[in-house]
């Protein structure tokens, strides 16, 4: 009797476990399918008039203005901290003159793009998710649809294009500010002219660093815009739905940023072997 109960209990447990696995897999596949379909739809709408230049510029402007101070401060601190942290190690090897070069390579290749993209995922991705989500919940998207105005074209295409083109610009800006942070850090204790710093910093940078680092920022921007729009556009009803849309836009796009980064590193590695 006792054994039986145990058996049944275990069996039930297994079933629960099993169905829980299925739910995770199901939601993952559903999301992936939905996002792929959304991407296809995006590209279909991309080339279909009317082209909303004005709305695109408005969105781009909004992205720039809302993130500029935050990215500036973060980038400055990153450059400063990175330099201060690396300084003792470099000094130990007597390689202090390599400090600017080392910092600039890590900023341009990795830290600038990723930190900027993550900040933008948090700030812009969630903003887009919440905005479109609340437009869905208050039936504004439906209202656009029933007046034959093609909201996918008006709302989604403009926003995704805006993030795709603004993130690279913001990354460039973050890199510059980080350099300045690094320069300030070096001058806290020693003296180095800006000119010498720049020479040392730019010396180790090659096209191999710049091209993949720039190309991946476009993908970061695209992912942030697309995922934010997707989550908002298909937001569940109710206030809770809007919160969820904003939240999952940030979580998913942050994750996707790391995945893109990983792929970019692999590709850059491969191509550098190929070209050398």
């Amino acid at each position: 009797m006792k054994l039986n109960i145990k058996k049944i209990f275990r069996k039930q447990n297994n079933q629960i476990q099993h169905s829980a696995d299925n739910i995770w897999l199901d939601t993952f596949l559903l999301e992936l399918g939905g996002l792929s379909r959304f991407t296809v739809q995006f590209f279909r709408e991309l080339f279909r008039p009317p082209y909303e230049h004005k709305e695109f510029l408005r969105q781009a402007n909004k992205i720039g203005l809302s993130t500029l101070p935050l990215i500036g401060i973060t980038a400055f601190i990153m450059g400063l901290v990175l330099t201060l942290q690396s300084k003792p190690v470099m000094a130990e090897f007597g390689a202090e003159s390599w400090l600017p070069g080392m910092v600039s390579v890590s900023i341009v290749r990795e830290i600038g793009p990723v930190i900027t993209a993550l900040i933008c995922a948090g700030k812009i991705g969630s903003g887009i998710g919440a905005e479109l989500g609340s437009m869905r919940v208050t039936e504004q998207i439906d209202a656009m649809e029933v007046s034959g105005t093609n909201p996918m074209n008006y709302l989604v295409v403009t926003r995704v294009l805006a993030t795709t083109f603004m993130i690279p610009i913001l990354v460039f800006y973050a890199d510059i500010i980080s350099f300045y942070g690094s320069y300030v850090a070096i001058n806290l204790h020693d003296f180095m002219s800006l000119r010498l710093f720049m020479n040392l910093a730019f010396d180790p940078l090659h096209y191999f660093d710049l091209i993949p680092a720039t190309v991946k920022t476009f993908f970061f921007g695209f992912a942030i815009g697309l995922i934010g729009c997707y989550k908002g556009y298909y937001s569940e009803m109710g206030t809770e739905g809007v919160g969820k849309a904003a939240n999952s836009a940030v979580v998913i796009s942050s994750l996707v940023i790391f995945i893109i980064d990983l792929i970019a590193v692999q590709l850059a590695d491969l191509s550098s072997i190929f070209f050398n």
Partner: peptide, 14 residues
């Protein structure tokens, strides 16, 4: 849809 007007219960103003 340009020939059928729809007035939403919740207005749905942009």
């Amino acid at each position: 849809r340009t020939k059928v007007g729809f007035i939403f219960q919740g207005n749905a103003l942009y």
